[in-house]
């Protein structure tokens, strides 16, 4: 486990000069991932904010090999790269002592939605890669449209809080659960505020052979209608309210990596975000209750499951 001081001696693999918004959560996530992964990685990225803002021709912020192909195929793309690597390794075309790791990146649009099939295929086939979803809860790149990761009640540009419909009417999809059903050796949820935990998870994931998955919350102040300097504080609150529990599942066994001493009410996190503003009107109180109940249920189930899976 590296300390910050140790990490600070590593090479910065995401160069400055990228054009993500000031205060973007995704770039913090990516910097931390690359610091953990080191230089010997090839990265694919789905179309989205991260991709467009870090590789505007003739500039790139990537100091590792980087490939953007399309929106829905970051997983299939990196699997293809990995397949070529396996072949070249097998045929002795690459240096024996040179080991390369493979990371696929995608936002929630590119992972939960349009890229789900490609991800599922890659996980099932057992390629040796890590897929990281940076989840900001909507299609931010095209202008904040709802995704299946958008929480119930959140206002987006395609699920606006109108006079009749109070924002998104569906619950968010639990992608981490879906990924778990692929029985891959390692998957986890992480948050950039807890850099230590995220760093550890990336290092662990990359030390395991086979498909791995990380779901990382990545606040977007444009979409969340929050403060420009709140990416870290909001990701911390998401964890302290148990909206975004930090846990990992290694070979089927669940470990909760952080249990808040005082689990905060979900509204503590929500009230800082304009996308939930309309939910604080008296007529929408039932939605707040629904959301809280959903969070409590998931969290309690995680606690129970962890208890059951404890070694005797």
């Amino acid at each position: 486990m590296a300390t910050l001081k140790e990490l600070s001696k590593r090479e910065e693999l995401l160069a400055g000069g990228h054009r993500l918004c000031a205060g973007c959560g995704a770039s913090i996530v990516v910097r931390q991932i690359l610091l953990a992964a080191g230089k010997n990685v090839v990265v694919s990225c789905s179309t989205g904010c991260l991709e467009v803002a870090t590789s505007i021709y003739p500039y790139t912020s990537w100091r590792v090999p980087f490939f953007h192909s399309a929106f829905e195929n970051s997983a299939a793309t990196i699997c293809g790269v990995e397949a070529m690597y396996q072949l070249q390794k097998r045929k002795g075309k690459l240096p024996v002592d040179e080991e390369i790791k493979f990371i696929g990146l995608g936002g929630d649009g590119g992972t939960y939605d349009i890229g789900l099939q490609s991800l599922s295929g890659g996980l099932e086939r057992g390629h040796d890669f890590l897929f990281v979803c940076y989840d900001n809860g909507a299609y931010m790149n095209t202008g904040i449209q709802r995704s299946s990761a958008t929480p119930l009640g959140a206002a987006t540009t395609t699920s606006p809080a109108g006079k009749v419909i109070p924002g998104k009417t569906q619950y968010r999809k639990d992608l981490t659960d879906i990924v778990e059903a692929h029985h891959i050796p390692y998957l986890a949820q992480a948050s950039p505020h807890n850099w230590k935990d995220l760093n550890k998870k990336v290092e662990k994931a990359l030390s395991i052979r086979g498909p791995k998955f990380l779901n990382v919350i990545a606040p977007c102040h444009r979409g969340w209608r929050s403060g420009i300097n709140e990416a870290i504080s909001l990701s911390k609150l998401a964890v302290d309210t148990c909206f975004w529990p930090l846990y990992e599942i290694e070979n089927g066994k669940l470990t909760i990596n952080y249990k808040p001493k005082n689990k905060k009410p979900l509204t503590e996190w929500m009230k800082l975000q304009g996308r939930f503003k309309h939910l604080f009107k008296p007529e929408n109180e039932h939605i707040l209750q629904q959301l809280q109940q959903g969070i409590d249920c998931k969290w309690n189930n995680l606690l129970k499951r962890e208890e059951v899976e404890k070694p005797c």
Partner: peptide
């Protein structure tokens, strides 16, 4: 390396990834 993908979209995507890999 035969990659038995889950769709033709992924067939070409993985092919593109592999070709880019070199």
């Amino acid at each position: 390396e035969l990659v038995t993908v889950e769709s033709e979209h992924s067939a070409m995507s993985a092919g593109i990834g592999a070709a880019a890999a070199g």
